[in-house]
């Protein structure tokens, strides 16, 4: 899966799936723009890539900030002359039943997980449409099936799934040469999962984790690197005939 000399922007890239994706893209030959709101984490990832002999740079990007998106994408084009890959990865999750969810909490999840994907996709199309590209939106299995304790997250990820298809069709209609696909990881051992669990009581967290692992046919959560490999595939020209598709990587969770 070759991404040689392609310029790629990854959001929420300081840890977890985003970090692993930066490493996967760099290994496939891409020039990687690592972005995050967490500057320390993002800089660490960029520095590790550079130390390993790859081309990488950190740029601070809060994905909810419309003007910042414009600035970052413009800076990338000014610096590298192009942007061919965008991975809309930044996201948050809060485990909370519908009756306890607040409008504020609902909006926060949907702003970061959904509104931001709209902002990033629109901005990327602006600069990609001249010579094509690949946009990969990180949805989730929770965008396909429901979880009783993830109402806001389910809604945000379902939105990303359908939005991705709309934009895929739009870009194909316009002959922009931009492919747009969604990725649907199952449970992945990242700070997102450990963080969400840490906000629960120990017994609730254990019950949640047990329920989850028991329902994964493969019997384990994924490693971030396993998800990154599928993302790199979609980003590369090897997915040349794929647009508007869903790539599920869930150890069999949704096949049940």
């Amino acid at each position: 899966m070759d991404c040689n000399d392609k310029v790629a922007l990854v959001t929420g890239a300081g840890v977890g799936i985003g970090e692993a994706t930066c490493k996967g893209l760099a290994a496939a030959g891409a020039i990687v723009v690592v972005s995050d709101i967490d500057e320390a984490a993002g800089n660490r990832v960029a520095n590790e890539l550079i130390a390993a002999g790859h081309q990488a740079v950190f740029m601070r990007l809060d994905v909810c900030d419309e003007s910042r998106w414009h600035r970052v994408v413009s800076d990338i084009v000014a610096r590298f002359g192009r942007l061919q890959i965008l991975i809309n990865n930044a996201g948050i999750a809060n485990i909370c039943g519908i009756e306890d969810e607040t409008l504020e909490g609902w909006r926060k999840t949907n702003t970061i997980n959904n509104d931001a994907v709209f902002l990033g996709t629109r901005e990327a199309i602006r600069v990609m449409k001249a010579s094509g590209g690949s946009i990969v939106n990180i949805s989730s299995i929770e965008g396909i099936v429901g979880d009783p304790m993830l109402p806001a997250y389910n809604a945000s990820k379902g939105a990303v799934r359908a939005f991705t298809k709309s934009v895929a069709l739009y870009c194909a209609d316009k002959d922009y040469g931009i492919r747009v696909n969604s990725v649907h990881p199952g449970y992945v051992a990242t700070p997102l999962v450990s963080g969400a669990l840490s906000r629960l009581s120990t017994s609730d967290a254990e019950a949640f984790a047990q329920r989850v692992v028991a329902s994964i046919p493969m019997g384990r959560m994924a490693e971030a690197a396993e998800i990154a490999k599928g993302i790199v595939f979609l980003a590369s020209d090897d997915a040349s005939y794929m647009t508007g598709s869903e790539l599920i990587m869930d150890g069999g969770y949704t096949a049940r």
């Binding site: 069709l169 046919p217 005939y241 647009t243 598709s245 790539l247 599920i248 869930d250 049940r256």
Partner: peptide
């Protein structure tokens, strides 16, 4: 695709 099983991969130009 080490964590991929039971999926449908569509390769259909949209």
């Amino acid at each position: 695709s080490s964590y991929v099983t039971g999926i449908e991969l569509t390769v259909d130009g949209g």
